[in-house]
Write a protein that binds this DNA or RNA. Sequence first.
DNA 1: CACCAGGCAAGTA
DNA 2: TACTTGCATGGT
Length: 212
Amino acid sequence: MKRKLNRIFQRLYSAFGQQHWWPAESAFEVMVGAILTQNTSWANVEKALAALKEKKLLGAGKLYKLAPRKLAFLIKSAGYYNIKAARLKNFLKFFFDNYAASIKTIAAVDLAVLRKQLLEVNGIGQETADSILLYALDKPIFVVDAYTKRILFRHGLIKEGADYSSVQDIFMRNLKVDAKLFNEYHALLVKLGKDYCRKQDPKCEACPLDGQ
DNA sequence: CACCAGGCAAGTA
DNA sequence: TACTTGCATGGT
């Protein structure tokens, strides 16, 4: 498995190059984006983030004070806006209550400890927690998403419907535990998923992973 | 028109 | 534990 995973990474990197993830201007923006992108296209999330920036509200304090209805309205384009507004509030309360909304403070917390805490926040599941840990706080944890599972399934590396932890373990146990590597690898899988491994065309034509 | 997108929680059996 | 359903906009 180590060989397969490393070969896949090399193929993807050769085909697509560095992805420069996460696309955001700050760690806090990554956290907000991680919640907004739940089951939602990134293009729609970008509109929501732009709306918050335009109003100069993309900061922990500003967002926490903002009325839930107003927040929901501003992130409307990201879909599920009522529930996402509530989830952002839940996360912000956690961030203020435990870490005074300080990125430096929260980033100093042990990976396993913080992951457990994040999962206790209503609205933050495994993928969102791991996205925050890896892309906002630079912690070495592998992010698994729908693309990851689909790609691994289509290439015969996992069974259909494999659960999150089992897929995550495949990467964590067979790759060097390195935030930089995990960052690039997940981003490359998303790139492949978007461009070649769509749900609608199961044939994955011209997939860079096929052939020799 | 139908289907999908960088999930999650709550309800049911 | 293993399904099912609600949440919602915007692009293809």
